[in-house]
């Protein structure tokens, strides 16, 4: 049986990864928008993003919109592959195939 990636296999992180993947290739999402799409508190989202960042699954960019600091999050190439592998493993467990 395929092992499920423990970095992704947590409710909050799976939801983050699904959202980033669904936003499409090369999409960067602002922190508040991501928070809204997930209904997560800023603190909770930051904690889980840090874990995903440590695994090099997401890239967090701090930038400025005019003078306001803004944080953008995107899936890394490794993150996208890990998410696809996770989904394949999950479907295999459910006997759906990929």
């Amino acid at each position: 049986m395929a092992e499920l990636d423990p970095v992704i296999h947590a409710q909050a992180r799976l939801r983050i990864m699904s959202t980033l993947a669904a936003l499409g290739a090369d999409a960067q999402v602002s922190f508040p928008r991501l928070q809204q799409l997930l209904d997560m508190t800023a603190g909770n989202l930051s904690t889980h993003l840090r874990k995903l960042e440590d695994a090099d699954y997401v890239i967090v960019t701090k930038t400025h919109n005019d003078r306001t600091p803004a944080t953008y999050v995107e899936l890394s190439a490794a993150g996208r592959r890990a998410f696809e592998d996770y989904m394949t493993a999950l479907r295999a467990l459910l006997g759906e195939g990929s």
Partner: peptide, 8 residues
């Protein structure tokens, strides 16, 4: 709004 990328 809040997303930067080709789709947006």
């Amino acid at each position: 709004a809040g997303v930067k990328g080709p789709q947006q």
